[in-house]
Design a protein around this nucleic acid. Structure first.
Lengths: 363, 363
DNA sequence: ATGAAAGCGCTAACAT
DNA sequence: ATGTTAGCGCTTTCAT
């Protein structure tokens, strides 16, 4: 009993070679017994497998096999945040579901690479035994991302960074989507608007973000969404330099709520545009708490189209997150002998729901 | 450019040995340049790294390193369902978050093993390059689980199967929790009750489950929860053989809704006890659709304590799902030289909320 | 149907 | 601080 436990505790006892010796056959034969049953007589195969069981041989070591075959049988996933964040953000979860679907179809494992934002040890990436990487939404100039690019395996990026030479990418047109949103609100008469956005750099800055900071943002997605809003509102004559943009480092409802509070404390706006549903849900919560009627007094919009946004009847941009995950996986796994890198832009959709309506002045 | 792509496409060009040859140093030195910077002069290290870059050497191959060091740097996760299910079930997502937290702390990767319920090829388990496995809620006698036990690495089971010799386990007292729930309802006067449960075997059976089927269930958790209910209601004089139990293979709200419908079509009960929140949420939805007032006309209870249950004010049993995940990871990763296997039972809590109230007869 | 030979690419004693 | 030696455990042509 204690011995069985011991046996399970990584003490490899028999090897393919020792088993072959015991049986008086070659290693090839033993290997074939596991990997190519048709290459040897059923009787011999039985004998091999029985002896294996008797000797406690657990079958070919997967790592040794991977070394030999040069296939790990797994896809690595690199995330912006700590590993566990993947399960906290509903958008990430959706993306992962799609990616997992693609892996499943391919019989590939999915290895979540343990990156710690603090310890900038890109070692984990270098140590990951994978056949390729999917990179989910990383800032420009990220060490871990660079480490991924060093690895001689295919890479697919989701969302950001864009424009990495020779790397496939799947994403959406963040700019165009936000131009749409701006037009939607401008069409409802909104001119005095405020914006809540996600972090723009890797250093924490919870507060207003200057136009310069917006343009220098290290997160391309945020940069493009803000630029889209700027362009869309410009069409309606809104001077962007007067539009307050509040940034939050953490991506959570409470961050959204506090950002909304900070915004409204200093600016009299008729609409709060958020660059994510989570932030918008927080803004909604603050509006309710503060007794600001939505959408009568103030409009609130999101981005992503998560289930909770639907329940809240949030006006938002729906993006096909699950499809992005699946497409990323397929791009990585089904690549034939394709030489050129590909970029896949998936469609988005403006969902005008109950949290946006005519601006106060127009009611 | 095309060459850079080619380079990324798994054609390993330089190796540690060729780099050493080029430099005229030993392989050890090159290895040290990467793994033990303190073992060689900074100047030499620079030279090694520079030459590596020039030659396109991507650093030590992780698989070869794993073979040599006998460490994969990753934990494998085995799930009941297809891989992607992990991201669809909120309870699984929570568990994974906890597990990821433990992995993170340990610098371990998390490998989701691609098991397909259909193709009973336990090969994926055998091929996973991991230092140990976490097994999440598997039925008794599962092929993939057996394959895990064959591997000479530590294993931690969450929930089920219980009582596997020499394997650590983390779980809750499902039986006791449901005794509590039965007492809660019985205390409110409920005597005519019905139950909605999750699948009891790997073959689909969407319909009523006989007492015998309940007792033969291959899913220990369901078996224990039903047994707990039986015991708890027995204290109030309820004859279990007259209690209708409706089983659903799929775990989804719509499964819960249809099960509730099936139950109510044939039985006049004052309470529907569900073995999961998801099923209960579905039952709630059906009750609303069918115009049955909850809790006035009928009580509905769940199990798990997911966020959606809180929003619905569902009476349920809260279990510390995230903690289970973290504990499973810690049990696997922080095992000292412990010889005995351990079982960790985490506490649960009955949350009496708005979906349970006095039985009709007692109002 | 089975075997022999030749590595896959690396690290860890142990020397020097 | 650097080199020597000795594998880690396996698969895969190519022969027989």
């Amino acid at each position: 009993m204690a011995e069985a436990l011991e046996g399970r505790r990584s003490r490899r006892t028999a090897t393919l070679a020792s088993l072959a010796a015991e049986l008086g056959v070659s290693r090839t034969t033993v290997s074939n017994a596991y990997n190519r049953p048709d290459q040897l007589s059923p009787a011999l195969r039985r004998r091999v497998l029985d002896t294996a069981r008797r000797l406690g041989y657990p079958g070919p070591d997967p790592v040794a096999r991977s070394l030999r075959t040069r296939k790990a049988g797994a896809v690595g996933l690199l995330l912006t945040e700590a590993l566990s964040y993947a399960f906290r953000d509903p958008v990430a979860v959706q993306f992962l579901e799609g990616l997992a679907l693609a892996c499943e179809d391919n019989g590939s494992g999915l290895l979540l690479v343990p990156v710690s934002p603090e310890a900038d040890d890109p070692g984990a990436v270098a140590r990951a035994g994978v056949d390729g990487f999917v990179v989910y939404s990383m800032p420009d100039d990220d060490d871990n991302f660079h480490a991924v690019l060093e690895r001689p395996v295919p890479v697919v990026v989701c969302d950001q960074p864009t424009a990495v030479p020779d790397v496939d990418r799947v994403g959406i047109d963040d700019h165009a989507a936000m131009v749409d949103m701006a037009r939607h609100l401008a069409g409802l008469g909104h001119r005095r608007v405020g914006v809540l956005c996600m972090r723009l750099s890797t250093e924490r800055n919870d507060g207003f973000a200057s136009v310069e900071r917006q343009q220098r943002a290290r997160y391309e997605v945020q940069r493009r969404r803000l630029a889209g809003l700027r362009e869309g509102f410009a069409e309606a004559g809104v001077d962007w330099s007067a539009v307050p943009v509040v940034e939050r480092y953490d991506h959570s409802e409470s961050a959204g709520a506090s950002a909304a509070e900070q915004l409204l404390a200093q600016h009299d706006v008729t609409a709060i545009v958020c660059t994510s549903d989570i932030l918008a849900l927080g803004a909604l919560r603050h509006a309710r708490t503060a007794g600001r009627a939505v959408p009568d007094e103030i409009a609130v919009t999101g981005f992503d189209g998560v289930p909770a946004a639907e329940r809240a009847e949030l006006t938002t941009i729906r993006q096909p997150t699950l499809d992005k995950g699946r497409a990323a996986g397929e791009l990585l796994l089904d690549r034939g002998d394709r030489q050129r890198s590909r970029t896949l832009l998936l469609p988005t959709e403006l969902l005008a729901r109950a949290t946006s309506g005519p601006a106060r002045e127009f009611r």
